[in-house]
Design a protein around this nucleic acid. Structure first.
Lengths: 207, 207
DNA sequence: ATGGCGATTGACTCGTCAGTCAACCCGACC
DNA sequence: GGTCGGGTTGACTGACGAGTCAATCGCCAT
């Protein structure tokens, strides 16, 4: 019984992992449920034994991953760190997620986060939670006098997150080269660009 | 004959305008061709008289608008202006486009630009052209000593464009309030954030 | 052995549209 | 007033794919 439960969990996982590969390769709308089943090496119907619908597969992938991010954001803000380091921690988390599992991140970004008309709509509240978390960090940074106050925290959060997502997207679609080096450098570049600004003057040192 | 040609052009326009409304309301994939025809007040088949396919309708909407943007970017770079003003001009153009026709911009952003797996893929080269144009502006800014050189122009372009698109998206989906005032202020906020940075120190004056 | 039950199978159903097409309308021109 | 041709119509088809379901499998307890 313990075995059967374990096997069940493993099969479910097997299907989810297959779905990531298929979604990343073909896109959610362009792929058929049978593609997922084939990729996982299971029968068509089994997908429906573990998930109510094709949508639920993607929902699960998104929620499992996104909840980690909102948790991290809240966690980071609780720590006593300079605002720059908080923002760098968030950037690191996202870029490391991509480095660790680019296919999963591609699916989440392309099919959910940036697909605001379909799945983005469904998950708008969860997505918003991340924006709000970043905005809160900015607010605290402003309160501590580390960040300028004439840019609203909500706006700053959007600019920050938007910059991150655009860089991710450019990696996903090969508009910018991606590698270990790029990922590591980009963490600093994002923070430098958003916090330090592009203006020539007091360019801070880049690690 | 002159009349019939005019009427034909007008009918085509009628269908395109109807498509914008329908795509904006229901999304490209969720709407049927018959929805477009109904909205335009014409018969189903007429859509196929003027366009080869449903895709071609969206393609047309995108290309007509996006070409204006790439043209503007190249045009702005040719002028002898401080880099900040060049970037502000681009931001202005985009935000004014949204103010002038939010539905069309919603369609272009949501269904093409951010839909990198479906239509974004098709138009990747055109989209890229805009990124490259912005990168060129940044390069010129760096050459003139106005912008720091330790952030690559490609990267800076992505951060800049990503910030703009995220703000647009947050307006589109009511995550941030939109109005004349917000649109006007945001032009400066984007440039201030990206060029000046969020750090407290030398916060430039906001108009 | 045997019965029970959840896991697994895959053929089938059923609704949905994109795109086609043959017929019709109507203004222009002779 | 006739006929020619592009504009216009909308019923129809054909493909496709999500989700269903009845049958089968195989593990475990009795």
């Amino acid at each position: 019984m313990a075995t059967s439960k374990t096997n069940a969990a493993e099969k479910r996982r097997l299907i989810l992992d297959a779905a990531v590969r298929v979604f990343a390769r073909q896109g959610f709308h362009a792929c058929r449920v049978s593609d997922i089943a084939d990729e996982a090496g299971v029968a068509y119907g089994l997908v429906y034994h573990y998930f109510r619908s094709k949508d639920e597969v993607l929902d699960t992938l998104f929620r499992d991953r996104w909840s980690l991010m909102t948790a991290l954001i809240e966690d980071v803000d609780r720590q006593d760190l300079p605002t720059r380091d908080k923002l760098r921690a968030i950037t690191s988390f996202i870029f490391d997620s991509y480095r660790h599992d680019p296919e999963l991140m591609k699916v989440i970004i392309v099919e959910v986060t940036r697909a605001a008309n379909s799945f983005g709509q469904t998950h708008l509240q969860e997505i918003r939670k991340a924006y709000d978390g970043i905005a809160t960090i900015v607010e605290h940074g402003q309160a501590k006098g580390e960040l300028r106050t004439d840019v609203t925290s909500q706006f700053a959060a959007m600019a920050f997150y938007g910059a991150i997502e655009q860089v991710l997207t450019s990696w996903i679609f090969d508009l910018l080269p991606f590698g270990e080096t790029e990922a590591e450098q980009s963490k600093n570049l994002i923070v430098e660009t958003i916090c330090g600004g592009l203006d020539a003057r007091s360019a801070g040192p880049l690690a």
